[in-house]
């Protein structure tokens, strides 16, 4: 799939993510919209997955360690054909298969339960290690948050990914520089993440997280590297695509939507 088509998919992911959240009236909009371009590339270009057989044995895997981005992942999964688009309307409705935070036991296509931050990246390391043992060629992708990287477990996982030489692991950091209580700089700096991960021994790229071609190029680069895991620092905008959400800055982590805001947001994403 080419750049223009992937851009279009990313746009649709943003549209349906917003529709899910705004229909419900509240949700984690900011950190969902910031990873839409990455999800388009992963599900519609890179990952060896089969929506008709979500548990295919040797499939590539994605761990969304920042589990609160569930709504964006569900939009991507529905667009890919894992479940009907109408099911997106059930986000967080009692008894749903689409909870706020990703749950592997509920949603077809979700490879790991996440939401308690810092844990998913360890699971991704485990999956990459399993793939090495099984020698099945499967690649493991993982998305961590910048605020999430304040969790010590993220760095434990990074040490082990390097030690275990997991060149089949590609981690993306959604560096939108915001968290619930303020900017990451104000709360607990994770500045110069590329340098930090380099020092840990990763193969590192730092790119514009909304540039489809740059995302594709980083994955191509990672595939050429032997014996080292890759970290891609994505410079992103929290709430990307909806101006009033972007402008809410740190307050866009979780937002309420009334009917008027819903209409305005969807209009902008058309």
């Amino acid at each position: 799939m080419g750049t223009a088509e992937l851009r279009n998919i990313a746009k649709q992911i943003r549209y349906y993510t917003t529709d899910e959240i705004a229909t419900l009236g509240v949700g984690h909009i900011g950190g969902s919209l910031s990873i839409a371009d990455l999800l388009a590339v992963l599900y519609f270009k890179e990952m060896n997955v089969d929506p008709k057989n979500p548990n295919m044995e040797n499939r590539d895997r994605l761990v969304v360690s920042k589990g609160h981005a569930g709504p964006a992942v569900y939009a991507a999964l529905a667009l890919k054909g894992y479940f009907p688009m109408e099911e997106l309307k059930t986000l967080n409705v009692e008894g749903t298969n689409l909870p706020s935070h990703c749950d592997r036991t509920l949603t077809p296509g979700i490879d790991m339960t996440a939401g308690s931050l810092g844990q998913g990246i360890s699971a991704a390391v485990g999956m990459a290690k399993a793939s090495k043992i099984l020698d099945n060629g499967a690649r493991v992708y993982c998305i961590i948050g910048d605020g999430e990287s304040q969790e010590g477990q993220v760095w434990e996982a990074c040490m082990s990914a390097v030690q275990l030489k997991l060149d089949n692991l590609i981690v993306f950091m959604d560096y939108n520089k915001m968290q619930i209580d303020g900017t990451t700089e104000e709360i607990m700096s994770v500045a110069n993440p590329a340098e930090r991960f380099k020092a840990f021994g990763f193969n590192v790229y730092e790119i514009d997280g909304h540039d489809i071609d740059a995302i594709v190029a980083s994955i191509d680069g990672a595939k050429q590297v032997k014996d080292k895991p890759t970290m891609v620092v994505l410079n992103t905008v929290k709430g990307k695509g909806i101006s009033f959400v972007e402008n809410a800055l740190v307050d866009c982590h979780s937002m309420n939507f009334n009917a008027e805001q819903k209409a305005a947001a969807l209009e902008e994403l058309k």
Binding site: V63, A128, M159
Partner: peptide, 22 residues
Amino acid sequence: FDVGIAEQNMAGIAAGMATCGM
């Protein structure tokens, strides 16, 4: 194998491996 003195990571790695049938 060893993951060093990092029990949280050990639990997570194990969980990830279990999702792959290990």
